[in-house]
Computed example of a mutant assay.
Amino acid sequence: MARGSWMQGAFDRAVLRRWTAAVRAAPQAELSVLRRDLARAEALRLRLGELMAIAGDRLAQPRIGSQAFPRPPGTDWAWRPRLWRGPLARKGEAGVLNRTPIGEEATVFHDCPLGEITLRQIRNSRTDDLAPFGLRIDVFRFDGSYFALAIDLPPSACEGLKRRHLVRLDIRLEMERPIEIFARLNIRHGPNAEQLVRELPLHQLPPQGGEVWVEFDLAYTKLNEKRLEKMWLDLIFEGPRMNQITLRDITFARYPRAEL
């Protein structure tokens, strides 16, 4: 044990013994001694309360950088984008323009000339949150024809990718009012690109929000497994005006389809 650690431990034990003795002596102590001890105890209680509140809050939150989330059996690749696992240098953006990047992996695309859109990374702290961070999207007036969030998957997503694979997308989200959201998986292979589109089953969500998932079956593509270059996901929001959408978590998993 380091000398500093030993000395700190000895000091802490001495402080504990001192307060234990004060408690035992309190019933017979002189009033002047009680007043002195009470003032010191009140100051100590204030600081201890602050420490317990901060420590309890931090320890209750998901750990920054966490990649912990459930994976289907047979998963050979899984990933949570950085936006949901680590703090961004720039937490928010107001008047979001077309092609606005959010960190290094996500980009917002839209054709609304008003720009009444704000984005903000938030810290998740609820008991059922697994991702350390979330993304809150506020859309006010919106006169455009499309609004999408594109997420670039890392190169490892294409390594070993086969047509026998299923790619699963899990999303935990909340909305002020119901809208339709579509997930489009894009895979570039040589000069060609495959696209698979799924509508998120948001009708299954309770009013307070929750988790939904979809699967993309690569057997329905003409994927050239030898020329894989890039994979990305588009989340397409239909009619997002006057809404607040909070994406608490987004995760991906890849696993082989069961043999028939």
Rank of each mutant, 00 (worst) to 15 (best):
A106Q: 00
T107S: 05
A68W: 02
G74K: 10
L200G: 10
V214N: 08
R80W: 00
L218I: 02
H110F: 06
L218Q: 01
S156W: 04
G4H: 13
N243W: 07
K230W: 03
W6F: 13
H165M: 12
P73S: 10
A150L: 06
R141G: 12
A26W: 15
Y255L: 05
R99W: 05
Q67K: 06
G134T: 01
I151C: 08
F69Q: 08
A253L: 02
L218N: 00
G190V: 00
L166V: 14
R17Y: 13
L48D: 05
L51W: 14
E42M: 11
V96F: 04
L153C: 03
E180G: 04
V108M: 13
S156M: 12
S66N: 06
S5T: 15
L97D: 11
R136C: 08
L16A: 14
G144I: 07
W232A: 04
H189Q: 04
T75V: 02
E174Y: 08
V96H: 08
T251N: 14
A94G: 09
A29E: 03
D12R: 15
D111G: 09
L196G: 09
P81A: 09
L59M: 08
F142S: 08
R24V: 10
V96A: 13
P178I: 00
L196C: 08
G134K: 02
L97Q: 15
L46K: 15
A78P: 07
L114R: 14
L223R: 00
R45C: 06
A53Q: 12
W84S: 12
L247K: 03
L44K: 09
A60E: 10
F252M: 14
R198D: 02
S32L: 11
P113M: 14
R168K: 15
Q204V: 10
L51A: 14
P81G: 07
R82W: 04
V23N: 05
P155S: 10
L235N: 02
